[in-house]
Design a protein around this nucleic acid. Structure first.
Lengths: 254, 254
DNA sequence: CCATCTTTGTGCACGCGTTCACAAAGACAT
DNA sequence: ATGTCTTTGTGAACGCGTGCACAAAGATGG
């Protein structure tokens, strides 16, 4: 408002819209790239383009954090990187546990994106006794029996669930009981948690189904009249009769 | 201006709101579970609880599809499974390619959720010549050189990108040029695509950062005055000097 | 056939998020 | 110092999504 260096702006953290919070990591990534190229300042227009959003939206998003820009110039890259990092809580190190070290869990353990952005994999946990002690991503897998102790010893408040769907709720309950208050769920299940616990889900199957919906719509529009153009699946897979709307519930199981 | 921007895909899709489309897979999953238990009908209230949404929202969502319920009774499970499957385009088989067979790509290839819900992994593609021919999930990895031919031969219209960030845009361009019109992107980059191509992104790092934000807010509220309570990371990790608000942008690289 | 009861389908109001458009703020040149 | 030019920050309008609350529809029992 007045000074450009307001440390504690009137903007309560509660006042930051959820949609804005979800975009902050996007901005941070773009800013970090600029920082590495030693770009000193950036305009809202440029940064918005890099982050793939509207410039007006970006400016409004930043306005919730405070007045960190300079009119006529733009934003100081380093300063903004720091402010967003602080706002997101990345200036501290968050220990996380990954439960369920199957293919996906192992992939997550190896994912570099964790360690590099303020997160640290504190432990890998699996229910299979055969996995215990086996090293994954340079770290021994621990057994589910020790889950509570691991959470407590490491002060973990963020848990990642990569178990099969059937085990997810049970694991979730134990994590919450042990003190975890934020969960990233990769299992295809709806988790129920008490108030005060945040759950975010990543569901590959759902994302694909959404894409399929749009894909079908595109195919349907294109070949609405020009029925000559077969849908992609049928293009090469021989012929798969598919009327504009089927009549027989030939549905496959889950 | 030089950077091509990724405009939002057309929000209007056949009258069905995007938010509703995103929930249909959720309903489908819950319905499939009921179907396996041979439950004949279900009320909006029950189904909503199973899917973790509001019952009014569910009814409104279904109303966009048509009047498939019976007042006083509820919805016929089998019929609804079929209707939603058809709406989502799952009554046909979608061949997908996965590009980038690292840890994540391999995990995706092994993920059962693909094959079981109308999707079929048509090919695994990687740029590393050493990977070529090596079997992953019972399928030989093919080299990037053959990407265009693979897409064309299999009539693929959905591509999954699991490459490092640096390669993602290039892979994306080739996929699009080869005819792919829907992309599921796991690489931490903003992809720019021409109109008519849908991109959905799954970003582990972003999800974690959003959780961290809320986690910090929770911790901040609890220990607003009681500074004695250290943030979780410091609770066990010895001492990690971190003032409540630093002044030096000691930001770590991407 | 009528009354009652259950559950759907939806009109409506409200709140959030997005976008536009512009005044205010500051840099920079003269 | 003053004017011009660039870019931010934001008031306001708009549109979408959500949830309430209820009438309509149909099942069920007498």
């Amino acid at each position: 408002m007045a000074t450009g260096r307001t440390h504690r702006p009137a903007t309560r953290s509660r006042g930051i819209p959820e949609a804005t919070v979800a975009r902050l990591p996007l901005y941070l990534r773009a800013l970090t790239a600029l920082s590495e190229r030693s770009v000193p300042t950036v305009s809202s227009e440029e940064l918005a383009a890099a982050a793939g959003v509207n410039s007006a939206k970006l400016r409004k998003d930043f306005s919730y954090l405070g007045s960190y820009g300079t009119r006529g110039v733009g934003y100081d890259v380093e300063y903004l990187v720091y402010q967003i990092s602080r706002e997101l809580g990345l200036t501290q190190d968050w220990p996380v546990v990954i439960v369920g070290i199957g293919n996906l869990g192992a992939a997550l353990a190896n994912y570099g994106g964790f360690a590099s952005r303020g997160f640290r994999v504190a432990a890998l946990i699996d229910a299979d006794p055969a996995m215990a002690g086996k090293p994954v991503a340079g770290m021994p897998v621990q057994h589910t029996d020790d889950l509570e102790k691991i959470i407590d010893d490491n002060g973990v408040s963020i848990g990642v669930i990569a178990t099969p769907a059937g085990a997810a709720q049970q694991v979730c309950d134990r994590l919450v009981a042990a003190g975890v208050t934020s969960i990233l769920n990769f299992a295809p299940t709806v988790l129920s948690v008490p108030d005060g616990v945040d759950v975010r889900k990543v569901d590959l199957s759902i994302e694909l189904q959404i894409l399929a919906f749009h894909e079908q719509r595109k195919a349907g529009e294109e070949s609405a009249e020009a029925a000559a153009v077969l849908p992609p699946a049928a293009r090469a897979a021989g012929e798969d009769r598919k009327g504009p709307d089927g009549d027989v519930p030939a549905v496959m199981p889950a």
